[in-house]
C-alpha cells in the first residue's frame, strides 16, 4: 500500500537555479549577434594602409575624422569622395567642419585637437594635398595618417 506521508508543512519545491547561467549566456549571445559596430555607417570604403612607425591615438575624444575613398554605394561611381561625419562633402567644407569640431572642445584642450585622415590605399595624392592645405589654412596642424600597425616578420 502506498504510504502517504502527511506532511504538516507543505513546501513548494525550490526553483532550480542550474539554468540561470544558461539564461545569462543566451542573453550574451543575443547581444553579441545583434550589436553592430558604428564604423559600418561610413559612406566610403576605406582600406587603411599599413606602417611600422605608428603611434596610438591618445585622445579619441579630441579627434575628428576625415574619410577619403570610393563610395560604398556602387551607384555613386568609383571616383574618390571626401566624407565628413557621414556625409559627402568637398574640400571647401573642411573649414566649417573644423570650426564646429573645435567649438565642441573645451578651450584648454583645443591645442590638442587632432585630425585623423583615414584614406584608402588607392587614393591619389591630389585630394590629400588639398585637404592638408585646407587644414593648414584652418590652423588645424596636428594630423594623423591612420594606418594599421605592420608587424615585421
Amino acid at each position: 500500500m502506498a504510504r502517504f506521508s502527511t506532511s504538516e508543512k507543505k513546501e513548494t519545491p525550490g526553483i532550480s537555479s542550474g539554468s540561470l547561467s544558461d539564461i545569462v549566456f543566451m542573453l550574451l549571445f543575443f547581444f553579441m549577434v545583434t550589436t553592430q559596430m558604428r564604423e559600418s555607417e561610413s559612406k566610403v570604403k576605406v582600406t587603411v594602409p599599413q606602417a611600422t612607425e605608428v603611434a596610438k591615438l591618445e585622445r579619441k575624444d579630441l579627434t575628428s575624422y576625415i574619410n577619403i575613398g570610393a563610395p560604398t554605394d556602387k551607384n555613386l561611381g568609383t571616383s574618390t569622395r571626401l566624407e565628413l561625419n557621414g556625409d559627402f562633402k568637398s574640400v571647401d567644407d573642411i573649414r566649417d567642419f573644423i570650426s564646429t569640431e573645435r567649438n565642441a572642445i573645451s578651450p584648454e584642450d583645443r591645442h590638442l585637437m587632432t585630425v585623423a585622415i583615414k584614406a584608402d590605399k588607392g587614393v591619389q595624392m591630389g585630394i590629400i594635398t588639398d585637404v592638408k592645405q585646407e587644414l593648414r589654412r584652418c590652423n588645424a596642424l596636428k594630423i594623423m595618417y591612420q594606418a594599421n600597425k605592420l608587424t615585421e616578420e
Partner: peptide, 30 residues
C-alpha cells in the same frame, strides 16, 4: 553557476578593447 557566468562576463567587459586607432602622427607647418 550564474555567479560564475556573471564574473566571466564582467572580466571580459573590463579587458576587451575596441580596435585601437593607430596612425603616423605629423604636424603640418603653418
Amino acid at each position: 553557476t550564474a555567479d560564475i557566468a556573471f564574473l566571466l562576463l564582467c572580466y571580459f567587459l573590463m579587458t576587451t578593447t575596441m580596435g585601437d586607432k593607430t596612425g603616423i602622427q605629423r604636424t603640418l607647418p603653418k
